[in-house]
């Protein structure tokens, strides 16, 4: 698998570290809702098809990326910096 890092260019997957599901939302840090935290920490969907994931370019620029990848074919349809994507979702406010 080749990942097109927006900073370093196309690189082999061995340079990257998988960092988990990028679709889950971290609950409000002050919340003690155990069900919400449990879902965030443990529950994972395993969709056949498109999925969003965090990858760290650990052997390169050490930036976290958000990758949209098809779980059945491994075809990557989009790659971007996680910081940009997360910041835009949150409108600059951290939870």
């Amino acid at each position: 698998m080749i990942i097109k890092c927006p900073y370093c260019g196309p690189r082999d997957v061995i340079e990257f570290t998988y960092q988990g599901d990028a679709t889950r939302q971290r609950p409000d840090p002050a919340s003690s809702d155990q069900a919400a935290w449990s879902a965030y920490v443990y529950d994972r969907a395993n969709p056949m098809g498109s999925h969003r994931e965090f990858w760290l370019h650990s052997g390169g620029c050490r930036q976290h990326l958000i990758i949209t990848r098809d779980m059945a074919t491994h075809v990557i349809s989009s790659v971007g910096f996680a910081r940009d994507a997360v910041a835009s979702v949150k409108g600059g406010e951290h939870p």
Binding site: Q19, A22, R26, F54, L56, R62, H64, R83, V86, H94
Partner: peptide, 15 residues
């Protein structure tokens, strides 16, 4: 190091 990088990049990019 990786743990801290993850939180800065993916959870609190505003920091």
């Amino acid at each position: 190091m990786q743990h801290l990088e993850f939180y800065l990049d993916c959870i609190w990019p505003d920091l």
